[in-house]
Simulated assay, not measured.
Amino acid sequence: MSDTTMNPAVPEPAQAPADLPPVPAPQLPAPAGARTGFAVRATASVAVAALLGVGIGLGVLKAEDDGPAVSAAPAAPSASPTASAGPSFGAKQNGSHFGSMKDLLLPVPAGYHLGPDSGQFGNDTELTEEQRKAWVEDEVRGLPVKLQDGVRKAWQESALKGGGVRSLVSDDSSLQATVWLLQYHQTAVKAHDAWVAALGSDSGLYRVGPQIPGHPEAHCFLPHAAPGAEIDELECSAAVGDLRVVLGVQGIAPLPKDRIVPLLAQQLDRLAVPGASA
């Protein structure tokens, strides 16, 4: 994977005939639905194993004590009796996150603007309860019918408590990124992420993507691309307490690692659990 900045224009042949039109720049495809992980894009058997793996033993898990709310950076002392007593979003010491998903999501960084909708969920959304149910159905849809009830039950038992999505496009239109935050039981988050990491690194279905300095919990993979393909894609997954973070990227090949890595690193830094060691 190249570290060079991508050029959104495809160069014309050195001596193109004068009567031929110029070669157009490749267009980034629109997001294909709301899929949020390689675990649900791979072969049906592997996808089912990953999703059912999340549900193993969830029926006997007990609710965790949320503990006191503590942000990664302590709040400044109150300037007046009416000032807020604490941060509006952040992480507690036990790994549970609080606050709006739109606040927990990485704000639109410099050099980017909001991108296209991620399926039916929009481009800058905190999912409602109904949308979370729809998200589960999207994950189940397409699997063999005889397995759908088991996968659906696994997601129901993992109690998707929150979800958010933000879509970004670089100002030069060469890179499109979609960030998903999915909040459910910490044990299930960790198990699901482990399945995705194993699928990406051990199955041979994907190319290994870049590492994220300071965040060994993050795993990035790329599907195998046809030789000479103009568009490439990458997906990263990470478990941070009770949040699973999924970053999907599409762009003109070769994807620029030096632009993608900071996006995920900044998102993970925003969600950091107080006292956690990298």
Rank of each mutant, 00 (worst) to 15 (best):
A191K: 02
A191F: 00
A191L: 03
H192D: 00
H192A: 03
D193E: 15
D193C: 04
D193Q: 14
D193T: 15
D193I: 10
A194G: 05
A194M: 01
A194D: 09
W195P: 00
W195K: 03
W195N: 02
V196M: 00
V196Q: 00
A197R: 09
A197T: 13
A197P: 02
A197L: 07
A198L: 07
A198S: 13
A198C: 07
A198Y: 05
A198V: 08
A198Q: 13
L199K: 02
L199V: 02
G200Q: 11
G200K: 05
S201V: 01
S201P: 04
S201G: 12
D202G: 11
D202R: 15
D202M: 14
D202T: 15
S203Y: 05
S203H: 06
G204C: 07
G204W: 14
G204F: 13
G204Q: 11
G204R: 13
L205R: 08
L205N: 09
L205S: 09
Y206R: 04
Y206G: 07
Y206F: 15
Y206L: 11
R207I: 15
R207V: 15
R207K: 14
R207Y: 12
R207H: 15
R207F: 13
R207E: 15
V208N: 07
V208Y: 08
V208D: 03
V208R: 06
G209K: 11
G209E: 08
G209I: 10
G209Y: 15
P210V: 07
P210Q: 08
P210T: 10
Q211V: 06
Q211A: 09
Q211F: 05
I212C: 10
I212R: 03
I212F: 06
I212H: 00
P213D: 10
P213R: 07
G214L: 12
G214I: 12
G214A: 10
H215I: 10
H215R: 14
H215T: 09
H215Q: 13
H215E: 11
H215G: 00
H215V: 12
H215S: 09
P216K: 01
E217H: 11
E217V: 15
E217T: 09
E217L: 08
A218G: 02
A218R: 01
A218K: 01
A218W: 03
H219Y: 09
H219N: 08
H219D: 03
C220T: 12
C220P: 05
C220D: 03
F221T: 01
F221K: 04
F221I: 05
L222Q: 15
L222S: 15
L222Y: 14
P223C: 13
P223F: 12
P223R: 13
P223N: 12
H224W: 14
H224S: 01
H224A: 06
H224R: 14
H224F: 14
H224V: 14
